[in-house]
């Protein structure tokens, strides 16, 4: 099953595209701008709550796996290239140019937090890809650039077809006797080149056919009608809380951060901006409550 958007009866799926974009932007702002691992953990919990609210926990699993893999990679690589920090855990050998390869507690924690951050970014895009209606999002984008939004819509539409075609081709060629995966790197590249070329040709053929179909349906005739979607109270609530979270993240990143990894780790609970996670946790809690009530109470749903 491909991780793609499927319509569901949840408040996240029902959001106005503008509110959905703001929600995604606020998540990304929180994840990318906050330094304190405690704050980041709160942002992660918020993201998990939204995944739960959108009922896409199964759909985002591939993204979670990818995120975990990347996080693990960062966790491994960072202490090997970053030797700052007061608490040396392992004294490594001294190499020319690189110097001494010591592994420090600070570099290890910094790697773990960076990996976690990366995982949350991947997960946020996973949530966007599986719970936010791409047509609605692209409608908003089309007001800025119609051509770009159309290209994006086609890419979203054609990605699953391309994946399925690649799978089918791989199966057919396996039965035919093509060894696409054996041998060394060079042999593999040589064996796979015609495969990727054929897949590319297939995509070009499909693009030409779609262009023909679009022309037959009047694409490029002139002025295009744009749909206006109603901005409902739920959209206002989500937008307001998303903007609030974004503002908090931006404010906390301006000025001097109250958390340091080097030369020694700060205490995440002792800081001047302990209100940041409190505001974020409050925002996410309200979103979850509003979303659950929307799901459970028809009256509330009709009101917002």
């Amino acid at each position: 099953m491909l991780p793609v958007y499927r319509d569901k009866d949840t408040i996240i799926h029902a959001l106005h595209p503008l509110a959905a974009i703001l929600l995604l932007a606020s998540l990304l702002a929180a994840v990318l701008l906050l330094e304190n691992p405690l704050y980041l953990a709160v942002a992660g919990a918020g993201l998990a709550a939204l995944v739960f609210l959108a009922e896409v926990s199964r759909e985002v699993r591939p993204f979670l796996r990818l995120g975990l893999f990347l996080a693990f990679l960062v966790l491994i690589v960072n202490p090997l290239v970053n030797h700052r920090g007061d608490h040396v855990l392992v004294y490594g050998p001294r190499l020319p140019v690189l110097g001494r390869l010591d592994v420090t507690l600070e570099a290890l924690v910094y790697g773990a937090v960076s990996g976690f951050r990366l995982m949350l970014v991947v997960l946020a895009f996973g949530l966007a890809g599986t719970a936010l209606n791409p047509d609605h999002l692209l409608e908003v984008l089309s007001r800025i650039s119609f051509r770009s939004s159309l290209s994006a819509a086609l890419a979203v539409r054609l990605y699953p077809s391309l994946v399925l075609e690649a799978r089918e081709m791989r199966d057919v060629q396996a039965v035919r006797g093509e060894r696409l995966h054996g041998g060394g790197r060079w042999e593999r590249a040589r064996a796979q080149f015609p495969f990727w070329l054929a897949l590319f040709q297939g995509s070009l053929d499909r693009a030409a056919n779609i262009a023909e179909s679009m022309t037959a349906r009047g694409f490029g005739n002139g002025k295009v009608t744009r749909i206006r979607r109603a901005f409902r109270p739920r959209d206002a609530i989500f937008s307001f809380l998303a903007l609030g979270t974004m503002a908090v993240a931006v404010i906390s990143s301006i000025g001097k951060s109250d958390y340091r990894y080097f030369p020694a780790l700060s205490n995440p609970l002792r800081g001047t901006m302990i209100w940041v996670p409190a505001v974020m946790a409050g925002s996410f809690s309200i979103l979850v409550i509003v979303g659950r009530c929307w799901k459970r109470w028809p009256w509330w749903r009709s009101r917002i």
């Binding site: 791409p134 499909r206 779609i210 023909e212 679009m214 349906r217 009047g218 002025k223 009608t225 206006r228």
Partner: peptide
């Protein structure tokens, strides 16, 4: 005009949007 392969004609991602595609191109009122 309806062509042979539906895969080569669909432009949007959802059914409703696809039905709207030609109408929006024709510039009809909402």
């Amino acid at each position: 005009m309806v062509f042979q392969d539906p895969e080569d004609q669909l432009v949007s991602t959802t059914v409703e949007k696809e039905v709207r595609f030609g109408l929006e191109n024709a510039g009809l009122p909402s």
